[in-house]
Design a protein around this nucleic acid. Structure first.
Length: 128
DNA sequence: CAGATGACTCCCA
DNA sequence: CTGGGAGCCATCT
């Protein structure tokens, strides 16, 4: 296999930290990797993954809302085998399976940023 | 060096 | 809720 571009290598490294049964989005991975990486770049890295890193759990990366667009069937099957639940429209239940990011030591060692906050959570703002 | 591409996202009708 | 269009960015020709 050819040599993976530097940014891709970081993306693969981070993706390998996602434990089974959990998922994250392209945008989240991009935000944690940083260095001018965006959601599309992550998608491109995963597309080329077969040539660079066959051991990356690509199925754990889904769209922002949990939907799977391109290789849906295969991906959904793999995730269900890990215990990830889907709603009737075929979207992974991000609220329950979202990955919180790598542990602090790992993040610090590789300079990964924190995962972005999510407005999907029933936060209690407007305290009074 | 410039143009094309893609496993994404956000915004508006 | 669904669909179409623009924005973004690293890589590849």
């Amino acid at each position: 296999m050819t040599t993976a571009p530097p940014l891709y290598a970081r993306i693969y490294l981070l993706c390998r930290q996602i434990p089974p049964g959990q998922v994250t989005s392209y945008g989240d991975v991009a935000a944690m990797v940083g260095g001018g990486c965006d959601a599309r770049t992550v998608g491109e890295a995963l597309r080329a993954m077969g040539e660079h890193a066959p051991d990356v759990p690509w199925q754990r990366i889904v769209s922002q809302d949990g939907a799977i667009s391109t290789r849906g069937l295969e991906q959904r099957r793999l995730l269900e085998a890990e215990g990830v639940a889907f709603d009737r429209r075929g979207r992974a239940l991000m609220v329950h399976h979202r990955w919180a990011g790598p542990d602090m030591a790992f993040a610090a060692a590789h300079r990964f940023g924190p995962p972005p906050p999510h407005d999907d959570a029933p936060e209690q703002l407007e305290l009074f």
